Computed example of a mutant assay.
Amino acid sequence: MSLSTTDTDTSRIVTVNANRIDAAMAIQFKDDMRGQTEDGPDRVILDLSGVDFIDSSGLGAIVAAMKQLGEGRKMDLAGLTPTVEKVFRLTRMDTVFRLFDTVEQAKNA
């Protein structure tokens, strides 16, 4: 799993450079997210614009990544493709995460 990060004054943007987050990648995703977010700003923006498919394992991995941020830190999601956004809405995870159409909108929120 390839992740890249960019820091702003108030956020760390983590971009997923893969088109799937599924059972085969979930553990690696969680481990990589821990490494990318164990320090830094209190807000993490997860850029999912390159992700076309997510299954329940991938969804669980994103929730686990949010929980491992610790108290006082938060994760927002940006750039969800229609298929991925549908998974978040059907599972009501859109009530857990703030969803933004673009990274730019998330940065300005």
Rank of each mutant, 00 (worst) to 15 (best):
residue 1 M to Y: 08
residue 2 S to M: 04
residue 2 S to W: 07
residue 3 L to Y: 03
residue 3 L to E: 03
residue 6 T to D: 14
residue 6 T to A: 15
residue 7 D to K: 06
residue 8 T to W: 03
residue 8 T to S: 14
residue 9 D to H: 00
residue 10 T to V: 15
residue 11 S to V: 11
residue 12 R to D: 05
residue 13 I to N: 06
residue 16 V to D: 01
residue 17 N to G: 02
residue 18 A to T: 11
residue 18 A to N: 09
residue 19 N to Q: 14
residue 20 R to S: 10
residue 21 I to N: 00
residue 22 D to V: 14
residue 22 D to S: 12
residue 22 D to W: 12
residue 24 A to I: 12
residue 24 A to C: 13
residue 24 A to M: 15
residue 25 M to Y: 11
residue 25 M to E: 14
residue 25 M to S: 15
residue 26 A to D: 04
residue 26 A to H: 06
residue 27 I to Y: 13
residue 27 I to R: 15
residue 28 Q to C: 09
residue 28 Q to D: 14
residue 28 Q to R: 12
residue 30 K to G: 06
residue 31 D to I: 10
residue 31 D to Y: 00
residue 32 D to L: 12
residue 32 D to F: 03
residue 32 D to W: 10
residue 33 M to L: 15
residue 34 R to S: 00
residue 35 G to M: 05
residue 36 Q to N: 14
residue 39 D to H: 09
residue 41 P to N: 06
residue 41 P to V: 06
residue 43 R to D: 14
residue 44 V to Y: 02
residue 44 V to D: 05
residue 45 I to V: 08
residue 45 I to P: 06
residue 46 L to T: 02
residue 47 D to R: 01
residue 47 D to F: 01
residue 47 D to S: 08
residue 49 S to V: 07
residue 49 S to P: 06
residue 52 D to I: 05
residue 52 D to A: 14
residue 52 D to M: 08
residue 54 I to R: 01
residue 56 S to F: 12
residue 56 S to M: 08
residue 56 S to E: 09
residue 59 L to E: 04
residue 60 G to T: 10
residue 60 G to W: 02
residue 61 A to E: 00
residue 62 I to T: 07
residue 62 I to F: 05
residue 63 V to K: 06
residue 64 A to M: 04
residue 65 A to Y: 04
residue 65 A to N: 04
residue 65 A to S: 12
residue 68 Q to S: 01
residue 74 K to I: 08
residue 74 K to P: 00
residue 75 M to D: 01
residue 75 M to Y: 00
residue 76 D to H: 13
residue 77 L to A: 03
residue 77 L to E: 04
residue 78 A to Q: 07
residue 78 A to T: 09
residue 78 A to I: 03
residue 78 A to H: 05
residue 78 A to Y: 04
residue 78 A to G: 02
residue 81 T to R: 13
residue 82 P to S: 07
residue 84 V to F: 00
residue 84 V to H: 03
residue 87 V to K: 07
residue 87 V to S: 11
residue 87 V to H: 12
residue 87 V to P: 04
residue 89 R to H: 13
residue 89 R to Q: 14
residue 89 R to N: 13
residue 90 L to M: 15
residue 90 L to Y: 13
residue 93 M to L: 11
residue 93 M to R: 07
residue 94 D to R: 02
residue 94 D to H: 08
residue 94 D to E: 09
residue 96 V to Y: 11
residue 97 F to K: 10
residue 97 F to Y: 02
residue 97 F to M: 06
residue 98 R to D: 10
residue 98 R to V: 08
residue 98 R to K: 11
residue 99 L to I: 10
residue 100 F to S: 07
residue 102 T to S: 09
residue 102 T to K: 00
residue 103 V to K: 02
residue 104 E to M: 14
residue 107 K to E: 15
residue 108 N to L: 13
